[in-house]
Design a protein around this nucleic acid. Structure first.
Lengths: 188, 188
DNA sequence: TGCACATATGTGCATCTGCACATATAGTCT
DNA sequence: AGACTATATGTGCAGATGCACATATGTGCA
């Protein structure tokens, strides 16, 4: 469970409110670990109880008050402890690939639409990541790590975008029509 | 939720028991959607109740009896219905990348170990996938879809393996030592 | 005045998921 | 005879997750 740790790391950069964190997850660290705001608020409450973060109420004029959380030394210790455990292997869970796996049972027109959407998403992120990576000149250990993270994100998006394009071309062309539609039988 | 649909598609290939399905998930479709055996048995019970699969008890000699499940026409309809909904965007949840993002707080020796492990895993799967892809000569629509799935899996593993190697080299070299260890401050 | 919107923080509920544990049959190995 | 392995199917529980909904403040706009 890295939501906890993603929050701790984020708060290590700078103290933040739950609201800030939610936005931060939407923008930067969210590529590695997504989280919704209720999830974040709930987790913050737990972290506070355990003393891994400290909380301070900030009065604001013109806007509702905020509770700003700060990483504690205990939180830092927890991060180090956690980093000594082996990471859980990455596991893909992709709706779309399950459809492709069962292509015979699927509405191909809808799949094509979906694929188009995906491709655009991957291209968007690819260009955003490329721009970000070019700006980064790592001067600290942390920045080095983040650039490496950006780098795998970039490659991930690039491969997906290309794959979508190729797959779309194959689906639009006569590839499908040339194939038998007989469901395959697995050998026992 | 594609576990349901991953099961339906699998049963479309050939009727299977829960035990068979669990193995099948470990081997083939599991690259797109992982599932443990309790999860599969529970899901099967639900699918049966809804009439999306039918069940038949098979008496075996020398081994415990099995319940074999078959995809029904209703199940096929459900798959088509499902395929018309847009797929849920793929979301990465990676422990390891969160650590890299918070590199300053992390035990780098442990991270290196972890990275080595990862690289080996990716290389293993890469060579397995390559071998599988070379054997495949798609003759049906279904096989075409599965080859495309294998193709993205292959690229995914290749990029990860390369990235691991590069990152490991950077961590083993003097890259880190040349960097300041001052935690970066984010601009507000 | 009324309404939508951004900020800010939550609760409630249904499911998904992972992990440990339970149970039963039959073959193999020492 | 006892232990181990493979086959086969589950239960129980805790934690993660997603989604809808609730609530409060202040600004801008028609």
């Amino acid at each position: 469970m890295a939501l906890k740790h993603a929050i701790l790391v984020s708060l290590g950069d700078t103290p933040m409110s739950g609201y800030d964190l939610a936005k931060h997850f939407d923008e930067s660290i969210g590529f590695f670990w997504r989280a919704s705001h209720p999830q974040i608020y709930r987790e913050l409450a737990k972290l506070r109880e355990k003393g891994l973060v400290s909380a301070e109420d900030m009065v604001q004029q013109g806007r509702p008050n905020r509770t700003v959380y700060t990483l504690t030394d205990q939180g830092r210790d927890e991060l180090r402890e956690w980093s000594r455990q082996p990471s859980t292997p990455d596991s893909i869970k992709d709706d779309f690939l399950v459809r492709l796996y069962g292509l015979e049972y699927v509405d191909v027109a809808a799949l094509r639409e979906d694929l188009q959407q995906r491709m655009e998403g991957h291209r968007d992120r690819l260009s955003r990541f490329s721009a970000m990576a070019e700006e980064m000149k790592p001067a600290t250990v942390m920045e080095f790590g983040r650039l490496r993270g950006l780098e795998i994100g970039l490659r991930y998006e690039r491969e997906w975008a290309n794959w979508c394009e190729e797959t779309l071309a194959a689906l639009d062309g006569d590839t499908l029509e040339s194939l038998s539609s007989t469901p395959l039988k697995l050998v026992k």
